[in-house]
């Protein structure tokens, strides 16, 4: 393919809650195939609301959602199709895991699609293997840790073989190891060609994985671009109740307070910072 395709596209999406409050205001959001895109925003900015549009749970008051270039059809058949293409992993795994055992829960989606038992079994195995939860099949969800529940929730979506995976705050509430396990899984899925959309307010992690960042504040997209480009605009970031990654903040302080020559753009990850510092020492010698 010569041109990159927008697999998910929101065009001028506005959404009002049933009580009339505006949740989204003319949101434009595009995701290229095979990318990892982060939706960054403070609590209550409308991240989850926007995500629920991507598989047709919510219908925009005005505007349009396109999946793989086609407008979402809100018929029963159309919704089945969209939900097989776009899988959403919700923030709280307890909201998602309802079945008495892990295997039943992971099998829920594929069974709903109407696949044969053999195919369901194969998919359940594959998905559990991908998230490293083989051997937990017969366990009930309340005997799992937070990180394990999250991985099972991801497996439940993987088993439906979506092209696009949407994750609402996938690392919130997890310990560092649990969080990095989740990110590793997402990397691997992305390598295999899955498009991934993540909502988060963890600004330190975002530059590590995201190809593209959108910043949402009070229901509107206020900034978009590569991590470098987005974090250059420090005022906008801080105005949206977010902050720079710690490492970039350190560089900013070193430049402004200690007059060290670490100019913008500030490095966003430890790797970038290391290079910059090494280069500085080389220049000194």
């Amino acid at each position: 393919m010569g041109e990159e395709m927008n697999v998910v596209e929101a065009i001028d999406v506005t959404y009002h809650y049933p009580d009339g409050t505006k949740a989204l205001e003319k949101v434009n959001f595009r995701v290229d195939e095979g990318k990892i895109v982060a939706l960054l925003g403070p609590n209550g900015a409308g991240k989850s609301t926007l995500f629920l549009h991507f598989n047709g749970i919510l219908r925009p008051s005005s505007g349009e959602i396109k999946i793989n270039g086609n407008s979402v059809e809100y018929s029963k058949k159309g919704l089945m199709k969209v939900r097989q293409t776009v899988g959403i992993v919700f923030q709280n795994p307890d909201d998602q895991l309802f079945a008495p055992t892990v295997v039943e829960d992971v099998a829920f989606g594929p069974m709903n699609i109407g696949l044969s038992k053999d195919e369901v079994e194969r998919r359940v195995r594959e998905s559990l293997e991908k998230v490293g939860m083989l051997g937990f099949e017969k366990k009930p969800p309340h005997h799992l840790s937070g990180g394990e529940k999250k991985r099972v929730a991801i497996a439940g979506i993987l088993a439906m073989k979506p092209k696009i995976m949407v994750l609402d705050e996938p690392t919130s509430g997890l310990d560092p190891k649990g969080a990095s396990q989740i990110l590793k899984i997402l990397y691997e899925l992305n390598e295999e060609g899955m498009t991934i959309i993540i909502s988060t307010h963890d600004v330190d992690m975002v530059p590590l994985y995201a190809n593209q960042i959108y910043i949402i504040s009070q229901g509107a997209i206020i900034k978009e671009g590569t991590p470098q480009k987005v974090f250059e605009d420090i005022e906008t970031i801080r105005g949206a109740n977010l902050r720079l990654p710690r490492i970039a903040h350190l560089m900013e302080i070193l430049q402004k307070e200690d007059k060290l020559p670490f100019e913008k753009p500030y490095p966003l990850t430890i790797g970038q910072a290391r290079k910059r510092v090494l280069k500085h020492f080389e220049d000194l010698q």
Binding site: L52, I57, R83, G87, N92, D95, Q96, I157, M160
Partner: peptide
């Protein structure tokens, strides 16, 4: 919330 998550997995 549960209903939303089930709907997302093609619950019918």
């Amino acid at each position: 919330q549960l209903y939303i998550t089930m709907e997302s997995r093609c619950y019918n």
